[in-house]
Every structure is written in structure tokens, then in C-alpha cells.
Nucleic acid binder design. Structure first.
Lengths: 152, 152
DNA sequence: TCTTGACCTCAAGTCGACTTGAGGTTGCAC
DNA sequence: GTGCAACCTCAAGTCGACTTGAGGTCAAGA
């Protein structure tokens, strides 16, 4: 497949494909003249990259997870820690989803004032805020990067 | 509370608080001299903002969801659609989490070659890639924004 | 043959989300 | 009443993730 074909099948613009290659996230199997040639599994890999992005990982992290080059030895501890991070995120998203759904048909004048909304989201938000939380549950796991994603 | 207190309790830098105020995500209740004064519920709101961010919403979307000003009339349909979007994301994250956990102790030389990993993530990634998917399930819901997050 | 279209490279531009810095003001401590 | 730490504004800078543009190469068709 040439780059246009990949772009068409994946929905990822050719410019992005070049960019990803440059960053080591994907690789072409070679060139035909000066044109890149990709093989079919690129589509799958692009799917995983997209997945990683919605999971909130940076391109650098994704490269690390997927193995930038011929899938070298992987840091399994890192995978577990990413999974835990994700687990944490999932809990929050579930609370947020429920909060949104509730807010959508809650009679309260403002959902900030609805006790149910408060409880749902407050729970999810606890642990996001650094300060004196009620300490109910799920604190301090995956504490690296933690405390918001105040990524530097 | 003054800005330093809020920063300390929330972990959000003062510069970010000013930035958020400028963007309409938060508001101070007034000034004391030229210093902003916040009341306590700001902490909760900051938690929700952080939550929205990990859910992948932009600041503009969050402002819309939370109501930028005194919680005006909210677009309930929008809330439902955000919730659906989130639901979709959650499914993907769950698959990714399971995929990562599996990969962490899978004997396959490369997890790209492990059939279980493939299945888990392939499933999640389906619908992310535009092209001829196996069409199993959960396609085309929340199709706005869809097709990756090729935002704009 | 020569033109066109699809690809190429490399540098620069854009956008969102912040952060940093210069220069100004205030209140409390001494 | 003076110093200074902690706030303020506003402009500019940074970073990640891309996109756009200028200028070049090449294979195929008129």
C-alpha cells in the first residue's frame, strides 16, 4: 500500500503518517522509488495508536508501549502501571458519564446544586484534588504523574 | 480564600487559575484590593474541570458543560451526547486496560503477535479506523467528531 | 517530449493549554 | 514610612501534536 491508500483506509492524513513515522510510531516496509510502501498491518497499528491517544497517552508513551522498533524487550512493570492508571481513569469516566446522564434529566435548577450529581462527581473528583479529601477510597494508587496531570 | 490558598489546596498553580478565570471556567467572588477572592466551592469545580480533562474534553467543552456563568440554561441533549461519547471511550479503555494487563504477562515474543492481545485491542480499535471494519458492534454511534479525533 | 499529479523533504506555522517574565500595586512587618 | 512578599496585568514563550507550504522527483499518459 502506498501512503494515500493507508490514509484513505485509516482516515489518518498522509502528513500525520509521515509525522508518525518520523517519531518512530510506525514504519514503512520500504520505498518504491521515493514513495513509502506500507504493509497491511499498519492499519491495525494505527488503530492502536488512536486508542492510546483516547486513553490519554502521549505519542512518546504509545511508542514505548507498542515498541518503537521490531518490538524489543518490553517493560512489563510499565505495562501494569499503565493499566492501573487506565483503571483509575475508567472509574472517573464512569462517574462522569453517570453524572452527565443524571444531569441531563435532573430537575435541579443547576446540576452543581443537585445532591446526586455532587455525590457522583465528587467521588470521581476526589483524589484529583490534592487537598484534604474525605479519603474514602482509591487514593494514591499510581501516584506517579498523579496529582492532576500537571504535566510539568 | 486567596489565590495562593486555592492553589495550595487544589494543586492547581495560580497561573492556571488566572488562565481558567480568563477563559470563564471559574470565577472569583470578588476582589480584596486587587487580589482575587474565591469561595470554597471553587475546589469542587476545579475537581470537575480536572475530571473533564481526563475524560478528554477541551476547556471549551468543559465550560459549556459546567455552565460558564451562574449555570444558565443547559443543553440537555448535549449532555446526553457527551455521556454517550464517554461511554464509547470507556469501552475502549477497558479493552485497552485488559490488553495491557494481558500483554504484561503474555509469553508471546511480541504482544502484537499474541492472538488474545490482538482480539482485545482489535475490538476496541474497530470503529476507530474508518475503513472496512468487520462491523461487529458498536459502530457509528456518536458519529459526530468520530472517525478518530481528527479534530478539525 | 512534456506536463501533470502524487509523492517526497524540510522548515515554518497553528492550536490548545499553559507558563514565564517584566513591570506595577498593596498590605503588613518592622 | 519603608521594605518586601504576594498579589496583579499583559505580552510573549513553550510544548505536544500536527498541518501547511515551498521547492524537488518521478512515472504515466496526451
Amino acid at each position: 500500500m502506498d501512503i494515500a491508500e493507508v490514509a484513505k483506509r485509516s482516515g489518518v492524513p498522509a502528513s500525520t503518517l509521515r509525522f508518525y513515522e518520523e517519531k518512530g510510531l510506525i514504519q514503512s516496509v520500504g520505498r518504491e522509488g521515493l514513495r513509502r510502501v506500507f504493509n497491511a498491518n499498519i492499519l491495525e497499528r494505527l488503530g492502536l495508536i488512536a486508542l492510546g491517544r483516547v486513553a490519554g497517552f502521549s505519542l512518546a508513551e504509545i511508542a514505548q508501549i507498542l515498541g518503537s522498533k521490531g518490538t524489543p524487550n518490553i517493560d512489563r512493570a510499565m505495562l501494569v502501571s499503565k493499566a492501573d492508571e487506565l483503571d483509575n481513569t475508567i472509574q472517573k469516566l464512569i462517574a462522569m458519564r453517570d453524572g452527565l446522564r443524571h444531569a441531563a434529566d435532573c430537575p435541579a435548577p443547576s446540576h452543581m446544586e443537585c445532591p446526586k450529581f455532587q455525590r457522583l462527581l465528587g467521588l470521581a473528583a476526589s483524589g484529583m484534588i490534592k487537598g484534604e479529601g474525605t479519603e474514602k477510597l482509591s487514593n494514591k494508587r499510581h501516584s506517579n504523574k498523579a496529582r492532576y496531570q500537571t504535566r510539568q
